[in-house]
């Protein structure tokens, strides 16, 4: 019984310790995001990496999600003769949830792991120590540009995912299910609200912050050579994915709970 309590206590203390470390890391990182000097060249490079190079992955995920959503909705709604609801279901699902969440998860896999591996390798090969000895703050040089890129690029990617996802639903609805294009577009435009898009963009910004923060945090604290770098990449993706789902619920609660 005592050993069980000890194990529970140890786990709880470890959890508190990790939470404190992440909170401290976040605070220091954010403070460097808003204080000069700003490394515009590095921020631009990270924006390209996070935003532009993620476009194919996010676009493909979104178009097939929109297509499947239209198809599945049709098979369900046809039973109740409610096929006309498909444009609204597609656009609301994509803008509120699927666009930002699936886009965020794909970017977490691509960018979160890459950031953790890159920064982790820099840590274990003393490159971060070298940065410090060259009188350059690693938070300012490595972490802040990545956080800024995540925060700004994910909403743009989410906007692309929303547009492409809705277009995927449109393609299936028109060419496979025989919907009238004009009516479909009119229904989509009529039903979607500014708040739907705004909530999706806010979610995407939060997810972008979470993904880059987890990638940087786990990379920065990686230890023990190649195995440590591998573990950092796994932890970055897993923790970012879990935090994306958790934060998604709370943001939805803030925007849509009555």
């Amino acid at each position: 019984m005592l050993s069980l309590l000890q194990a529970l206590g140890r786990t709880f203390l470890n959890f508190l310790g990790a939470t404190g470390r992440i909170a401290l890391f976040t605070a220091v990182s954010l403070s460097h995001c808003v204080r000069p000097p700003f490394y515009s060249r590095l921020i631009g490079r990270q924006m390209l990496e996070v935003g532009y190079y993620s476009l194919p992955v996010v676009g493909l995920t979104a178009i097939f999600t929109g297509m499947v959503l239209a198809l599945q909705s049709y098979t369900g709604f046809a039973r109740f003769s409610a096929e006309s609801a498909i444009p609204s279901v597609v656009v609301v699902s994509i803008t509120r949830e699927l666009g930002p969440v699936l886009g965020g998860l794909m970017v977490a896999g691509r960018i979160g792991a890459a950031m953790a591996a890159e920064i982790g390798t820099m840590r274990v090969t003393e490159q971060i120590d070298a940065l410090t000895t060259l009188a350059t703050n690693p938070f300012k040089y490595l972490i802040a540009p990545r956080l800024i890129a995540g925060l700004t690029m994910l909403p743009i990617l989410a906007l692309v995912a929303m547009s492409v996802g809705v277009f995927g639903g449109y393609l299936v609805s028109i060419y496979k299910l025989g919907f009238n294009p004009t009516t479909y577009i009119a229904n989509t435009v009529d039903f979607v609200q500014f708040q739907d898009v705004l909530s999706g963009l806010v979610k995407a910004a939060v997810f972008g912050f979470i993904i880059t923060l987890m990638g940087c945090y786990h990379g920065y604290h990686s230890r023990g050579g190649a195995q440590g770098v591998g573990a950092a990449a796994i932890n970055a993706v897993v923790s970012a994915s879990i935090l994306i789902f958790c934060s998604n619920y709370f943001i939805t609660e803030i925007f849509f709970s009555r």
């Binding site: 820099m122 003393e126 490159q127 120590d129 940065l131 410090t132 000895t133």
Partner: peptide, 17 residues
């Protein structure tokens, strides 16, 4: 400011990849 006075050669050179 103090570190600006210092140069360092690391064991592995620690060049930025």
């Amino acid at each position: 400011e103090v570190r600006r006075k210092i140069g360092m050669l690391f064991q592995s050179a620690a060049l930025f990849d």
